[in-house]
Design a protein around this nucleic acid. Sequence first.
DNA 1: AATGAATGAGAGTTCATTCAT
DNA 2: GATGAATGAACTCTCATTCAT
Lengths: 231, 231, 231, 231
Amino acid sequence: MPTDTKDRILEAAARLFAEQGYHATGVAGILRVAGVKSGSLYHFFSSKEDLLVAVMQRHLDMLRPQFLERAAAESVTEDPLEHVFSLLGIYRRTLLVSGCKLGSPVGSLALEVGSGIPRVRVLIERYFAIWVAQVQEWLEAAGPRLPEGLERGAFAQHVLAVAEGGIVQSRASESLDPYDACVAQLRSTFELLVARSRYERDESRDSLVGEPARADESVGETEDEFEWRAW
Amino acid sequence: MPTDTKDRILEAAARLFAEQGYHATGVAGILRVAGVKSGSLYHFFSSKEDLLVAVMQRHLDMLRPQFLERAAAESVTEDPLEHVFSLLGIYRRTLLVSGCKLGSPVGSLALEVGSGIPRVRVLIERYFAIWVAQVQEWLEAAGPRLPEGLERGAFAQHVLAVAEGGIVQSRASESLDPYDACVAQLRSTFELLVARSRYERDESRDSLVGEPARADESVGETEDEFEWRAW
Amino acid sequence: MPTDTKDRILEAAARLFAEQGYHATGVAGILRVAGVKSGSLYHFFSSKEDLLVAVMQRHLDMLRPQFLERAAAESVTEDPLEHVFSLLGIYRRTLLVSGCKLGSPVGSLALEVGSGIPRVRVLIERYFAIWVAQVQEWLEAAGPRLPEGLERGAFAQHVLAVAEGGIVQSRASESLDPYDACVAQLRSTFELLVARSRYERDESRDSLVGEPARADESVGETEDEFEWRAW
Amino acid sequence: MPTDTKDRILEAAARLFAEQGYHATGVAGILRVAGVKSGSLYHFFSSKEDLLVAVMQRHLDMLRPQFLERAAAESVTEDPLEHVFSLLGIYRRTLLVSGCKLGSPVGSLALEVGSGIPRVRVLIERYFAIWVAQVQEWLEAAGPRLPEGLERGAFAQHVLAVAEGGIVQSRASESLDPYDACVAQLRSTFELLVARSRYERDESRDSLVGEPARADESVGETEDEFEWRAW
DNA sequence: AATGAATGAGAGTTCATTCAT
DNA sequence: GATGAATGAACTCTCATTCAT
């Protein structure tokens, strides 16, 4: 059976990098938390920077199972739009349990070391790309409930921005309020979009077919519903 | 006679903290950039952390003149809603001229040292509060052009989130695209809100008064206009 | 009127050197205590070492008025032997009021910088010489009450040794007990010496003259008395 | 495999602290003397102060084998009173070989850092206590040769005082003379005490028994002898 | 795989001192 | 006489890393 030393190091490093940042975290601290001696660390990783890359790769590996898929699984409804907020809820939980000390580890690393270590930057870019792609997929799955003109990809980026930006504010104020407010506004935007989409479809339907469409709409109404849900 | 040494140190520190982060910046680097010897730095600041506090205070002092007031002054129209995007444009310029290495210095500090140094965290919190308050003011100045039900304060936080979150993505991808996409979506949301407000007002007006109001509305139409403008 | 700045500096330095030692005392600390800026200090003293020399000279200047003459003045009797213990009592008071943190400033300097700074060592040597000379004088003033064979100078050095050595122990144990015990033993030795001297004189008187001397002795008995007195 | 690095550091530090004092000794100097790099020192000792504690502990560990037991072993006679002077002779040798630059390392530390670093002060206190206890034991082993009324413990403290105080003076004058004079006076006191004790015993014996005791006394005379011996 | 002693460059900071005002 | 900004060497200590075992 292979030892778990490497994992323990990775886990310790991931935790400390998230808590304190990369540069503020000393190798000694990682060794202490991992319960490992320096020789062991350098047996698995050739440098602290290398360890950071591995940590970032680990974040990447865990993005889908721990965040994206889990968000869908934990979502209160099958509605793909709801999945988006389920995902945002996962970040909320991280803020909550850490007393707003921890938010998105990757976002923090992006700002701290993104532009300094190319290998890491590329992984972060990929991480965000996957995140955005998944949200985009959910948005697309919502089909006509969102306005035809809405660029799903750009809007997914916007969603990520709200999440990261909300986290920044909540960490700064040590309160969930800003994050909640930001997400609430995002939800309102979703409602607005859904309403607009229905309105647009109504209009086009009106001009195209007319009253008979009304029957369908009553069904559509239900599907289109998108309302506020407490965390 | 006042010397500029202290300012040179502050400026150098602010720049390096923004470029590399607080922990990755050595005192030696600050001294080199400021063209000052170590003794001088410690004549004015009792520690590196103290210097950080002073830098953060400087950001706070410059927030209004350099960002908020300038955004209003540089705004392409007198429309307060446009001021918001003028402000977002300032951050865009920072990204642009730095090759997406620099975004919002305060956002970066918030994530890197926010939770570690209370004195700094408080200043960051205040910084965001002022930022948000100004945007909220602009939103309120837009009066009925935004929906009555829109919480101006929460929406201002949302605007800040989009900015900070867009910056995170643009720094990670070393491209303005994510930032632009995020801001574009935000603008769409503004348009949506303005449209919704007009719609709501139409409906109530219809029920309340009727045609005479239409005359006013034609003027209002112009005011309500809120369309995309290239950076 | 000349300013007292120089004196304030000297006093501050003397106090801090005594409390913390020479090397542990920073110029900054002296400036703070003296309420003076660095330029002023270097206006009067060319270096920290120079300041030490001046402090040591001050100790030398104050030795007679503040210690030796005061000891005689404060002595409970006119007995010169008692003056010795009056002097030791002054050091006791210093220990007492300082919680055994301060003893003999010069003794401490002797051990810390004596062998390193010749100018200072010479002053310390002179200081001890004057101290010893005074005690020797008192011992000589006791005349035949002390044994003829007792070397007054060497014994005075011994007295100084007991004082300094007692202080060392009391500072180490943060208690007056060791100092008191040492001085008590010294007093016993004095009693022993006085007794021995009387005995010797008795013997020689017996062999030389005889009974008539007894009359004088009854007076001498009183003079010879030398008993323990509480502090 | 145990390396000698730690010991080399301890030895170097002990030597330099004794020669120059704690504060005047730089870590760099210790490293140079020990032939070690800074990282190594901090591998074994967490700080300079910690190193001082270890040095002091080492003094404590070496007190018995290197000073107390050796004093007894090197003593010119089996007479326990002579052991006391054998011990004082060890300090004399230290003064001699160092040109009066070195005396009692612990005494110096007591004055320099005693009251500043509690951990060190406690060790110094214990050091003196053991020293005194051993001398007290020797004094007690002398049995009735010393006066019944003599407090052995207090007198042992007095002996230590004479040693430390003699060292202070010899270091200040860069001459063995003061130390020798102090020890000589102490020896005279011993002789006085022994004589007094014999006298007291004679008196009590006279009053109790009478002439027959004289036979024993001739033997006692030899035992009681306590005379000056050159170093 | 793992240990922990050893490295030495560099960290942040304090130091005594200088000097123009 | 006094100020306090400026200096730069030296300080204690931490850093990421290496390597013999």
